[in-house]
Amino acid sequence: MARKKIPIKKIDNINARQVTFSKRRKGLFKKAQELSTLCDAEIALIVFSATSKLFEYASSSMQQIIERRDQHSGVQGSDIPSTGKQLGSSSFDMLHKEIEEKTHELCQLNGEDLQGLTLQELQKLEELLLKRWITISKIKEEKMTQEINSLKTKEAELTEENQKLKQKLVPEQCFESITSSSYDFPPDNGSSDTSLKLGLCLFE
Rank of each mutant, 00 (worst) to 15 (best):
residue 184 D to E: 06
residue 30 K to I: 01
residue 87 L to M: 13
residue 142 E to G: 04
residue 89 S to W: 01
residue 21 F to K: 07
residue 182 S to E: 02
residue 200 L to Y: 08
residue 43 I to R: 03
residue 149 N to S: 10
residue 156 A to W: 02
residue 112 E to W: 14
residue 70 D to W: 09
residue 158 L to D: 11
residue 98 E to M: 02
residue 148 I to H: 03
residue 196 L to G: 05
residue 91 S to L: 15
residue 72 H to I: 04
residue 117 L to R: 14
residue 97 K to E: 03
residue 135 T to Y: 07
residue 183 Y to D: 05
residue 131 K to Y: 08
residue 38 L to S: 09
residue 168 K to W: 02
residue 40 D to W: 06
residue 12 D to Q: 09
residue 190 G to Y: 14
residue 32 A to Y: 03
residue 77 G to C: 04
residue 85 K to S: 09
residue 32 A to F: 03
residue 106 L to S: 01
residue 185 F to P: 00
residue 131 K to C: 07
residue 69 R to T: 08
residue 10 K to V: 12
residue 47 V to K: 02
residue 154 K to Y: 12
residue 58 A to W: 05
residue 69 R to G: 07
residue 145 T to Q: 13
residue 101 E to C: 01
residue 194 T to M: 00
residue 142 E to I: 12
residue 78 S to N: 08
residue 27 G to R: 15
residue 40 D to P: 04
residue 112 E to P: 07
residue 101 E to W: 05
residue 114 L to G: 00
residue 92 F to Q: 10
residue 134 I to P: 00
residue 174 C to Q: 04
residue 185 F to V: 13
residue 89 S to A: 05
residue 72 H to K: 09
residue 35 L to R: 10
residue 96 H to W: 14
residue 156 A to C: 04
residue 153 T to Y: 00
residue 134 I to Q: 15
residue 202 L to F: 11
residue 94 M to C: 05
residue 23 K to E: 01
residue 81 P to W: 06
residue 107 C to Q: 13
residue 10 K to S: 11
residue 163 Q to S: 04
residue 122 L to R: 11
residue 186 P to T: 04
residue 26 K to E: 02
residue 179 T to N: 03
residue 150 S to V: 10
residue 104 H to W: 12
residue 72 H to L: 08
residue 134 I to C: 11
residue 51 T to Y: 12
residue 30 K to F: 01
residue 103 T to Y: 04
residue 72 H to Q: 09
residue 188 D to P: 06
residue 102 K to C: 00
residue 111 G to D: 02
residue 6 I to D: 05
residue 18 Q to T: 01
residue 115 Q to W: 03
residue 31 K to H: 05
residue 138 K to T: 14
residue 128 L to A: 08
residue 112 E to N: 10
residue 34 E to Y: 13
residue 27 G to V: 13
residue 49 S to F: 12
residue 86 Q to M: 14
residue 82 S to K: 09
residue 48 F to W: 11
residue 9 K to G: 00
residue 191 S to I: 10
residue 92 F to E: 05
residue 122 L to C: 00
residue 126 E to G: 06
residue 90 S to T: 09
residue 4 K to Y: 03
residue 194 T to R: 04
residue 23 K to C: 05
residue 1 M to F: 04
residue 150 S to K: 10
residue 49 S to T: 15
residue 59 S to Q: 08
residue 95 L to A: 11
residue 122 L to Q: 02
residue 164 K to T: 14
residue 38 L to D: 07
residue 20 T to D: 00
residue 171 P to L: 01
residue 166 K to W: 00
residue 93 D to G: 06
residue 36 S to C: 09
residue 152 K to T: 15
residue 200 L to G: 11
residue 42 E to F: 06
residue 17 R to A: 02
residue 25 R to G: 03
residue 120 Q to G: 00
residue 137 S to A: 14
residue 99 I to V: 08
residue 31 K to A: 06
residue 135 T to M: 09
residue 95 L to Y: 07
residue 152 K to H: 12
residue 106 L to K: 06
residue 186 P to L: 03
residue 119 L to I: 11
residue 23 K to M: 02
residue 78 S to F: 02
residue 181 S to D: 01
residue 81 P to M: 07
residue 99 I to K: 15
residue 126 E to V: 12
residue 204 E to L: 06
